[in-house]
Amino acid sequence: MEIVLPVVIGSLYAMAIYMLLRRSLVKLLIGLGLLSHASNLLIFTAAGLTRSKAPVIPLAADQLRPPHADPLPQALILTAIVISFGVTAFALALAYRAYRSVNTDDLDQMKTTDA
């Protein structure tokens, strides 16, 4: 899996970037979603994969015996997931509102604020 997952991550990044480069606002949002999947999976993989039990100390035991998964990246990813959920929700609302005021989904029509 150490070979496969990096390729999956790379593909997710590639697909995310491709979607970000579209003219459609909705596709941009989907690209952002893919980007966050890619990042989370990257943290998970880069920290080292362990095909083993969760980092939870069994009720009967006093301590966790190896092998077990690394708990720290899990906590980090959890934080990242929740943050990206908030961000995605906001981006959705923004897209909706932008669509309402500009009346198009085409990003190329949204350039009145640049120089």
Binding site: I43, A91, S101, T113
Partner: peptide, 25 residues
């Protein structure tokens, strides 16, 4: 105007966050 500015601001800053997160991992 705010909407148009915000879309660019949000997108590019989210890209930055994604890069940051990947770098952290």
């Amino acid at each position: 105007g705010q909407m148009e500015g915000a879309i660019k601001y949000v997108t590019l800053n989210l890209l930055s966050s994604a890069i940051f997160l990947a770098a952290l991992g």
